[in-house]
Amino acid sequence: MTEKKIALVTGANKGIGKEIARQLAEAGYRVLVGSRDLGRGQQAAAELNEAAGGGPDLRAIQLDVTDPKSVQAAADTIANNHGRLDVLINNAAILPAEDSAVSEIDPDVLRTAFETNVVGLVAVTQALLPLLRKAERARVVNLSTSLASFTLVGDPSSRMSTRRTFAYNATKAAVNMATVMLANELRGTGIVVNAADPGNCATDMGGWEAARTPAQGAAVAVRLATLDADGPTGQVHAEEGQLPW
């Protein structure tokens, strides 16, 4: 029997993260459901396992991306239990309710967004990189957005240019840069790094009136997480294909 690949999804107790976890488990991965609140992660994992009739293999792991001790504890747990990590999905992120235009945003709101969306993502990636290196063909997927595209936001005819969410846009633009720079670092190692834009989905973050479902939003991240050896690296993709920077 082939040993299951190990995947970690941060912020996976709800929304797109939970759906990514479900789809990876259905694809045969052992999925670690990362959650700041362990109880919520356990509930999400139990719900997904039960809904699938017990076939998928999902397990909760406590992980607060803004807490260095929590990040290291999660890395140690994965090392002790599995010895490697095949897939890292950096999904955990916030869109502050107080997010606003550049001329209006409170600097503290901006700091908080960067702490979670960028610093937290980098901290998790650094802590888990040694385990990713031990996998035969590891994949890293960072959740991004078309709102981080300078091309789209800079086009006055694009609806992306009308959104006044500077903290979210700026942090996800930084995520894109982290994606391409890490991909450059890891070329030739077998580790592929890309970013995924799920689109505006019906979640707490996207708004429940959004047209896309979490399942639709998760699909592109799962596709990038399961790329073949000749797949792209250092790119950001949406459902329709590669997005411009």
Results as ranks from 00 to 15, higher is better:
Asp228Phe: 01
Val193Ala: 04
Glu185Ala: 07
Met177Val: 11
Val193Leu: 08
Asn184Asp: 13
Pro232Ser: 06
Gly207Ile: 07
Val192Trp: 02
Ala183Gln: 03
Thr213Asn: 08
Met205Asn: 04
Asp228Leu: 06
Arg212Trp: 00
Val236Glu: 01
Pro214Gly: 07
Glu239His: 13
Ala219Gln: 14
Val180Glu: 08
Ala210Cys: 03
Asn176Phe: 13
Ala221Lys: 05
Gly231Phe: 09
Gly241Lys: 10
Gln242Ala: 13
Thr179Leu: 08
Trp208Gly: 01
Pro214Gln: 09
Gly188Thr: 01
Ala211Asp: 14
Arg223Ser: 12
Gly199Ser: 09
Glu209Val: 00
Thr179Asn: 09
Thr213Lys: 14
Val222Ile: 06
Leu182Cys: 02
Thr189Gly: 01
Gln242Cys: 00
His237Glu: 08
Asn194Glu: 06
Ala183Glu: 04
Lys172Asp: 11
Glu240Gln: 14
Gly206Lys: 03
Thr189Val: 06
His237Ser: 01
Ala202Lys: 10
Cys201Arg: 07
Thr179Phe: 13
Val222Gly: 07
Asn200Thr: 13
Val175Leu: 11
Thr233Lys: 05
Thr179Met: 08
Arg223Leu: 02
Val236Tyr: 03
Ala229Thr: 12
Thr213Tyr: 12
Leu224Pro: 00
Ala221Trp: 12
Arg187Gln: 13
Gly217Phe: 10
Leu186His: 07
Arg223Gln: 13
Ala225Phe: 02
Gly206Phe: 09
Pro214Glu: 04
Val222Ala: 06
Ala219Pro: 00
Ala238Lys: 02
Ala238Met: 03
Gln216Arg: 05
Asp197Arg: 00
Thr226His: 00
Ala196Glu: 05
Met205Tyr: 01
Lys172Met: 11
Gly190Met: 03
Ala195Pro: 00
Asn194Tyr: 03
Val192Tyr: 06
Ala219Asp: 02
Leu182Trp: 13
Val222Glu: 04
Gly241Ile: 05
Ala178Val: 14
Asn184Ala: 14
Ala211Thr: 10
Gly188Met: 06
Glu239Ile: 12
Met177Thr: 11
Met181Leu: 12
Pro198Thr: 02
Asp230Tyr: 05
Ala195Leu: 08
Pro214Thr: 06
Gly199Ile: 01
Pro198Arg: 02
Asp230Leu: 01
Ala221Tyr: 12
Thr226Cys: 10
His237Val: 14
Ala219Tyr: 00
Ala210Trp: 12
Arg212Phe: 00
Ala174His: 07
